[in-house]
Structure formats: structure tokens, C-alpha cells
Design a protein around this nucleic acid. Structure first.
Lengths: 355, 355
DNA sequence: TCTGGGCACTTACTCGGTTCAGTAAGGAAA
DNA sequence: TTTCCTTACTGAACCGAGTAAGTGCCCAGA
């Protein structure tokens, strides 16, 4: 009825608790024949070590933690995280590691969670998402000595190992594609401006504008479809209406598609749209969205692999994953021949930042 | 540097470890003045009980578990689960409970996870989703004595408490709305046929068809957009093409919208579409989708509340949450005046079940 | 023959809580 | 005053693992 303990295995194998512990953990101190006998006894009894007891004794917990800071509203729609999680799980489960997920509402709380986890030894390491410049979590984790891997640009990850796909390269690919189609006025609907990867995208975009002699503008949002729609409306109402829009996630791109239709613009004839990240929905809308595709699940798998190495104490370095590549679909085409300032009721000019 | 233990608090307050434990857990055995002194000492030291030690000593873990069985691919796009989780978290966190999430690949594995959790005392209770008729998990949980709440129809939950919103009522509302608009040929793109709530929807739909003298058909899918698109194509290619489609989730409805456009049908003029569940995306597509709206987050909150009561040993009964109600939007209208058999290339008739 | 060393295993203590049994002090009843 | 009970606390066992230190044994070498 009750679950067998290490003492039961010891009795069954005719040895002491200590011997069982050594045998099960593959440590020296027992002969091969005894080890086999112990393992057999453990097997027949269906023994599985009690995780609380292991944690208390300071053994690794075989759990890695992930905290999510974004508002629940965003998470509900963002395919990114669930795909990342499924990739993480894939790698972790093959190593008998579990993933502990915790929603938080701020950096302070997040650091407190890390501290509790680490002093409880309820996780062996953590994954860090959505880094900002000068993110306090990086320093806190380094100080604690909690193994961690940053999913984000290495520049912002301090001495922690990081994994990331170069957003700059991807943005160049998207913009050069639009420029080759003949677009000269390109706007970008960006994500949260304080996130490091948003900053990198914005910088690259600005630099490209100079190089390619484009008129560009970036508007920042909170990643929700509503905010993406608002930003789109403002951009499309500006006197020098852009002929192409690049969105920092796919949800906003879909929202933008709807706004275009609502304003009587045909995609791609009047307006080209590119989505960053390519969930199945991008292929389902009409027209299907040209998107920057990356294998988020694989990204998660690689992140997990890196973290497990760090937990093992192996030397780890920053890893560059494959950058997102453009999947051209029906939402992009050459700009309209008469790409002139819009005739619509002019509103105030879009600014570089927005709520 | 090191985290304070109960012994440190005891020393600071000048009492024994036992007294501290009683004081912190609100148990009798210490005077009010001593209790206050102990609490103050714990506060200044920043004491937080080590969860592994508590679990080992058999104390409640203040964690509830949730296993998810659906393929990762589905989870990545399904807003339902993330919304449910955010609602769960909202209630749990106010009671200092955490949520342990585990992806599984089958009922057997799921039951094994429950067993490990319960004998480890790493959860105090679990939430059960996606019940099937004769679901082995129900019996296993009952036998184990692990507190559990079923998120699903009470008919399938055995003696376990359940929470659910009556899908039958909602389906009636949707179908009567379509019938009132004049639709006579209505098809439904359902979810996984083995899930109990799918069965209930299908039964209700069939019954309604008789009552209202409608021509109906249900096609089952795996909830993915791809499968929804496939089902839509088949239904719209049938000789007696339906004039309205009801989808069991919003992802498939959006996919259906794209298929309609691809086949040259205008929504809602040629075809009406209703989505079950109403994530923000439904409002973002064009036309915005008429949807069966329910507050999934609140649903989660109520489920958590019920489970906490069950864990407390309070008597719990099945709870009926508010059913989903129709939010009419732009994707539904009266059927075309010439609602005749389609002139398109006839294919084989849609069957009741599909891959 | 005695010593030393290594192997194989046991013993005992540790982690940080909970909880039961025991005890001293104080008050009320006999 | 003695007895008994309650209150308020202490001490120690216990949960189930890990692990350092200790023990006995066998064998090799002097």
C-alpha cells in the first residue's frame, strides 16, 4: 500500500540503507554483484526516491524553474511561450528533469522566487526570459550562484550563459526583402521597448534605414493585439502612410491585417505585412502572412540542453541559435504604383514611442 | 548569508523549535504573547519554512498539480489553457498555493504522475481536465484518496467534485440564433470525439436538429487549425453545402474563415461562422467572429476555489459555472437568398467522424 | 607473523521541519 | 494542604534520503 522507502529496499536486498543509496546513485562503495542485487530489489518493489527527502539531504532536485513575468492576458494569446515550453519539456523529460513554472508580477518578486527555489533546492537551475538592459535578475542570480541560462542577447546576460537567435540578421532579411520589392516607407510595430531584444531590433532598423535610404518609424506596444491594432491605425492614418509594416509578433500582425481591411486597404496590393514569429495561425488567415519563421521549440530544446550542462558544472558559453528566416507568403508584394501620401484625414504624426 | 531555519527563530525568540512550529502554524500550545514574540522574530529574520522539510514531515505542500495531456502542438495555439491557468493562479496565489504543471503523453503516465505526487506529498490536490467517458484517472484518484476536482461534466466525474459550464445550453443558444436568422443547414466542426464535453455537444446538436427540423452534421477534429481547415474544406465542398458552421474552438474558426475566403465565399453573406470560446483574436480577424464567450479565467478561479475547499476537507458538490453566451459579431448573418445546393464540384459527403 | 592498505559495507549523523509525549507551573476544587 | 486539571512549553522521535566516518575482512608485502 505505502510507497517503498530506501529501508524497504535495503531489507529486501539484505544490506544497509547506505549501501542502497550508493548503489542507486552509481557511486563507488558497493561491489558489482551487490549493486545488481540492490537494483533488482528496487525494481521489483517499484522504488522511487522521495523527492522531498532528497531535496532536504541536499541532493539535486531534477527540476528547473521558469518564471513568466508578462501579464496573463498576453500569455493567453502568445504562442511563443507555450512553444518554448514544449521544446524545453522535450529535452528535460529525456533527462528526467521537470519544469516548474511560476507566474510573477515583477522583478522583485521574481528574484524572491529564485531565492526561495535555490535555498529550498527545489530547482537545480533556472531559465531567464525577457531580459532588459541592466536587468537586476542577472546580478542577483550571479550573486546567488544559482545556475541559469538567459534566453536573450548575450550583451545583456552578464556572465551568465545565453542562448539566442540573432534578431538583427532576421530584421535585415525582412527589410531587404521589402526594399527589393520597392518599398521605401516601412514602419515597425515593436514590442515592449524596455526588453533588450526589442532595443536590438529597433537599433538595427534605424541603422538599415540610413543605409538603404528608407523612411522608417518604430512604434512600441505591449504585444497585445489591441495595442497592435491601435498602432496600426495610427501609422496608416499618417500623411506619409507606410507601404509595409513589420510586426514584432504574429498576434499583432493579425490584428494589423484586420485594421487594414477595416480601413479599406487590400493586403498585399495596398499594404505589405510581415509577422515576426510564425505560429500556425499565420498560415490560416487570409492572405497568409509572410513571417519570420524560427523553430521556437528547438530554441527551447537548446536552451534546456545548455542549462543542463551548466547544472552539471560543465563550462558553458553563449550559443547562437539559427536566426529566424523569412517565409514569403501572400501578405507581401510590391507597393502600389501610386505610393503617394495618403489622402485620408491626416492625424498627428506617429512618434517613436507610444503607450 | 544562509537562510534562517526554525532553530534560528527559536533561538532568537528564546523558545524551542516546537513552540516556533506551533506559533507559525496557528496551532494551540503557545500563549498569545509568546506567539507574537515568535512571529516578530521570524519576521525580522526573514524566515520562510523549507518546503522539502515540511513535505518530508508530512505537512501540506501548498501546491496543486495540473497535468496536460494534449499534444504540445495544440497547446501552443490554444488560448484556453493559458487563460485557465491564469485564473487558477489568481485564486491559488492569494492562498499561497503554487501550481505545478506537468505535460504528459498518456493516461497511464498521468496516473503515475498523480501517484508520485501524492506519495511524495508534493501536491495537496489535483485538477483534472479533458475527461473521457470511463476515464481511468477518475477511479485511480478516488482509490488513492488524492483530493481532486474535475473540470468537466459531472456525469463523467464519478464521485469527484466537478465544475463545468453547461455546453448544452450554450449550443442551444448558438443554434437557435442561427435558426432564427434562417439557417437550415448547419454543420459543426467538433473537437476530439473521445472527450466527454465533445460528446455532450454532439448529442445536444443532434437532438436540436430533430426539434428544429434542421439538416446538421458534425465532423470531429483534433482541435488544430490544420484539421479545422481540412474539415471546413470538406464540408463546404459537399453537394448540400451548409450555410453556417459552428467550431469547437476559436483557432479552427479562424482557419475556417481563411478556407471560406480561399474558396471564394464571403463571410457572412455566403457563410456564417460561430466560434466556441472567444479569445482576443476573434475580435481581430475580419470580419470579427461571432463567438460563444465565457470567462475562462473565472472558470479557473472557481475550479481552484473548489479544490482548495476539497483539500480543506470541506464537503464539496458539483458546481455549475455560468455557461458560455453568444456574442454576435460580423461573421453571422441571414443565409443567402438562394441557399441552394452548391454548384461546386461535388465531393463525397462529410461523415460523422474524421481523422 | 605481523603490518598496512584497500575494498565492501555499516553506523550514525545530517538536512529542517512537525508532532507526540512529557513536564513544570499555576489555579481551582476537595 | 492535597489533588487534579489546564496551560504553556520543552525534548526527542520522526519523515526518507545522502554521506562522512568507522569497522571488519582479506590479501599483499616485509
Amino acid at each position: 500500500m505505502k510507497r517503498p522507502t530506501i529501508a524497504d529496499v535495503a531489507k529486501a536486498a539484505g544490506v544497509s540503507k547506505g549501501a542502497v543509496s550508493y548503489a542507486l546513485n552509481g557511486q563507488p562503495g558497493v561491489s558489482d554483484t551487490t549493486r545488481r542485487r540492490i537494483l533488482a530489489a528496487a525494481e521489483t518493489l517499484g522504488f522511487r526516491a522521495n523527492s522531498a527527502a532528497r531535496a532536504l539531504a541536499g541532493a539535486p532536485s531534477n527540476v528547473v524553474g521558469l518564471t513568466l513575468h508578462r501579464p496573463a492576458k498576453t500569455l493567453g494569446v502568445e504562442p511563443f511561450f507555450m512553444e518554448l515550453v514544449s521544446g524545453l519539456e522535450a529535452e528535460l523529460s529525456t533527462h528526467s528533469y521537470a519544469l516548474l513554472l511560476q507566474m510573477v508580477s515583477g522583478s522583485d518578486q521574481e528574484i524572491a522566487v529564485y531565492q526561495r527555489w535555490w535555498s529550498d533546492r527545489s530547482v537545480d537551475g533556472v531559465l531567464v526570459c525577457d531580459v532588459r538592459d541592466g536587468d537586476p535578475r542577472i546580478e542577483a542570480l550571479t550573486r546567488m550562484g544559482l545556475p541559469a541560462v538567459v534566453i536573450g542577447p548575450p550583451a545583456a546576460s552578464g556572465t551568465l550563459a545565453s542562448i539566442w537567435s540573432d534578431d538583427g540578421v532576421s530584421l535585415v532579411e525582412a527589410v531587404e526583402y521589402l526594399a527589393a520589392l520597392g518599398h521605401r516607407r516601412i514602419a515597425r510595430v515593436g514590442g515592449l521597448p524596455e526588453l533588450s531584444h526589442t532595443a536590438i531590433r529597433t537599433q538595427t532598423f534605424t541603422r538599415l534605414a540610413e543605409q538603404l535610404q528608407l523612411q522608417t518609424v518604430t512604434v512600441c506596444t505591449d504585444y497585445t493585439g489591441e495595442d497592435g491594432a491601435r498602432a496600426t491605425r495610427r501609422l496608416l492614418s499618417s500623411p506619409q502612410r507606410p507601404t509595409a509594416l513589420i510586426y514584432d509578433n504574429d498576434i499583432m500582425a493579425i490584428a494589423g491585417l484586420a485594421v487594414a481591411a477595416e480601413m479599406g486597404l487590400t493586403v498585399p496590393a495596398d499594404l505589405s505585412i510581415i509577422a515576426w514569429d510564425d505560429s500556425p495561425i499565420c498560415r490560416l488567415v487570409h492572405p497568409p502572412l509572410t513571417a519570420l519563421t524560427r523553430d521556437i521549440s528547438a530554441y527551447g530544446t537548446h536552451a534546456a540542453r545548455l542549462l543542463l550542462a551548466a547544472i552539471d558544472g560543465k563550462p558553458v558559453t553563449d550559443v547562437h541559435d539559427e536566426p529566424a528566416h523569412l517565409s514569403p507568403r501572400g501578405s507581401t508584394a510590391a507597393p502600389p504604383a501610386d505610393a503617394q501620401p495618403s489622402r485620408q484625414a491626416p492625424r498627428r504624426r506617429a512618434t517613436r514611442q507610444a503607450a
